Simulated scan of single mutants.
Amino acid sequence: MKRIFIVLLSIVILSCNQKKEEKNKEPEATENKEPIPVEPDGGIGDGALSISKHFTKTIEKAHKKDKFLNHKAVSFYVNIIFNGKEHLDGKVTMLTNSSKIRIDKKDESKLIYDGENVYLCPADANDKGARFDMFTWTYFFGLPYKLSDPGAKLELQDDRMLNNTKHSTAKLTFEAGTGDAPDDWYIIYADPVAKSLQAAAYIVTFGSDGDTSKAEADPHAIHYKEFTTVDDIPFATKWEFYGWTSEKGMTDKLGEATITDITFLEKEGELFDDPENSKIIN
């Protein structure tokens, strides 16, 4: 009995000493702990792409931008019908970075952009809409590769319907002094699965002298169709043009274009040299 009492007394003493030690133990300081870092913009911070850049990158990946730019130049034939009339029929040749362009028309006249000036050849050829033709159709062709160009700004927008399917959209605008028409804008439609560029609403402000009200009142849209692959790179071989409003999307059909014989070139040679018997188009 005496032994049991001694054992119990020892347990009580050990327990008291343990509680005393816990009581005397200083608590860990918490006020100086570094806060857990949280990335801004909903998790898109340093080391991660912004949402708009991710939108751009997925389109560029779908259209094999790196592979496209690995080629020196590309050529294709284009036939454009607008408002029931043939607007352009000819062969377009352009460097893949769009820095030089040549259009050989069916009527044997030529438009050449050498990186600085636009030349019309022969000098007495019809120059109506020449500069517009020089840059507009090549921009539509190269649009999937232009979204991250210097001066381009992309802002994500709400999804919009196209072919009864919701598409991700973003508005493309330009910094002042970018290109021939920095007041233009585009609404880019990206396929929800393939992420490829399927359509773009746009305004044409070229020649407006800063008054964009007419263009803003009459937006158009291009719908890319009938994709084919050349060197594993997808290209739309049918373009359809429509009226467009923000509320309704595409409305009346205005025209169409057919793209054929897409060919890559690895040397530019003298294709973009200033031609004889030509004049500069401003």
Score class of each variant (00 low, 15 high):
K166Y: 10
A215F: 03
P182L: 02
A176N: 12
D209Y: 11
A199K: 03
I36Q: 14
I262F: 05
V38S: 13
F5S: 09
W185D: 02
P40Q: 13
R160C: 04
T258L: 11
F68P: 00
T245D: 06
I44F: 15
D66R: 12
N79T: 13
A73T: 05
A48I: 15
F135S: 06
I51K: 15
I259V: 11
H223N: 11
G249M: 05
M250P: 00
K91G: 00
K64Q: 15
D180G: 02
E60F: 05
Q198Y: 03
L14F: 07
K214N: 10
D159V: 10
E34A: 11
E108N: 15
Y242V: 01
I203H: 01
D133H: 08
V204F: 05
E86R: 13
T205A: 01
N24H: 03
I81C: 00
G115W: 12
E175I: 00
E266I: 04
G47N: 14
K279M: 07
A170D: 06
T212V: 13
D89Y: 09
K25T: 14
P275I: 11
D209E: 15
T96E: 07
F174M: 01
E34C: 01
F141M: 14
E22F: 06
L120Q: 06
E226I: 02
V74L: 05
F227D: 04
T136F: 05
N126P: 03
N277T: 07
D159T: 14
K65C: 01
L271S: 10
N277W: 03
D180E: 14
N117K: 15
I11S: 04
D107F: 09
A130V: 10
F264T: 07
F174H: 02
E270K: 15
Q157V: 01
T178S: 01
S148M: 12
K128T: 12
D41A: 15
N79S: 08
A215D: 04
K19T: 04
V204M: 12
G269D: 14
G207R: 07
